[in-house]
């Protein structure tokens, strides 16, 4: 038991399993999986599909947080990339003739540019990360509104609509296609941080940025890279979100999702102060959040109490993750045993 709790992935896994067990007893048809139109169909499949955008964001956010930073602009970047991609698909930006490739390239490029901007502000101008990314968080939705001229872009009639819809809501080998994107990105990122020195530099930067710089780590460049990765992830996530609803809704796409992304990282057991990190457990954290959302809908929690229920679960989860709380709990139980004996 002691050995297990050492792993960052332990508590999110426990939370996920507990939620599933709850559903097994209290939510009817939760685990029912059938085959519809050649793909799997059920609540679990929904969780896998709907978690994808958040999972991508949490991967980027983990790297940023590992350096001791934070990126609260991801929600706005989601809106920008979705707006740009949908506008191109729907031929509103005329010169691309509704090309899918152009939509993806420019959508992702927008995210990379946003990330570079954040990285530039943090590493070169030395603005505190939360303030630096706050700028884009506020301005980003405005940029997205400019792209779509303040309207919701619906791509129902676009020629490449089917292909675009496939990215966020299509099925491959019976499973949501989006989760394959997450899997590829996750493996790629794990290779990057575990098979190269990059991950080590990240952790050293998060633990003590001055001493890492003095020992020759190019801390500015690393910061620039992680914010750019986070921007890229946000753009990819924005494309999945807009694809899933066949349209770009600049007011609501990715609204407050930065908070969920940060929460995924925290549930994953990563310290928000930076340092040692685990991408996999952040992704597990995202799964916990999405499982909670789906549970709330499937179980039928009244709308007025949803936020309260979610907050309650998160508080319990965080309490168990806290070592000092666990120790106090243990001590209290030991004390009780002594008394009863």
């Amino acid at each position: 038991m002691k050995n297990l709790t050492k792993y960052k992935a332990f508590w999110p896994t426990v939370a996920f399993v507990v939620l599933l067990i709850f559903n097994a007893f209290f939510t009817k048809n939760f685990f029912a999986i059938s085959i519809v139109d050649g793909h799997l169909f059920g609540n679990l499949i929904d969780i896998i599909k709907n978690v994808s955008p958040l999972a991508l964001l949490s991967i980027g956010m983990t790297l940023v947080i590992a350096t001791g930073g934070i990126d609260i602009s991801v929600g706005s970047v989601v809106a920008i990339s979705g707006a740009l991609a949908c506008s191109i698909i729907d031929k509103r930006l005329g010169f691309f003739d509704g090309s899918l490739a152009a939509a993806l390239i420019f959508g992702l490029l927008a995210g990379v540019l946003c990330g570079l901007w954040n990285g530039f502000l943090v590493s070169k101008v030395k603005i505190q990360p939360i303030v630096a990314t706050l700028i884009l968080m506020t301005a980003g939705r405005g940029v997205a509104q400019l792209i779509t001229k303040g309207k919701i872009v619906t791509i129902n009639s676009a020629p490449m609509m089917k292909q675009y819809y496939f990215l966020g809501a299509g099925y491959f080998l019976g499973l949501p296609f989006a989760i394959f994107i997450v899997a590829i990105i996750l493996v790629g990122m794990l290779m990057l941080v575990r098979k190269t020195a990059f991950g080590l530099f990240l952790e050293s930067l998060g633990i003590n940025s001055r001493s890492s710089r003095l020992s020759g780590v190019n801390t500015d460049r690393i910061k620039l890279v992680v914010y750019t990765i986070s921007g890229f992830m946000a753009a990819l996530s924005g494309i999945l979100i807009s694809s899933n609803i066949k349209g770009a809704d600049c007011n609501n796409a990715g609204l407050f999702i930065e908070m969920d992304a940060i929460l995924s990282v925290a549930i994953g057991g990563n310290s928000l102060a930076g340092g040692r990190f685990s991408i996999t457990s952040s992704v597990l954290g995202a799964f916990v959040i999405q499982c909670l959302t789906t549970t709330v809908y499937a179980f039928g929690v009244p709308p007025e109490t949803i936020l309260l229920v979610k907050a309650f679960v998160i508080v319990i989860l965080c309490l168990f993750q806290s070592q000092s709380f666990r120790q106090k709990l243990m001590a209290w139980r030991e004390g009780k045993k002594v008394h009863s004996a």
């Binding site: 939510t27 709907n50 609803i245 809704d249 796409a253 809908y297 499937a298 039928g300």
Partner: peptide, 16 residues
């Protein structure tokens, strides 16, 4: 009032 949430909730209704 959003499209994304409308879809997500309906997905859950259809399974329940």
């Amino acid at each position: 009032f959003t499209r994304a949430k409308g879809k997500e909730v309906m997905e859950a209704f259809l399974k329940a």
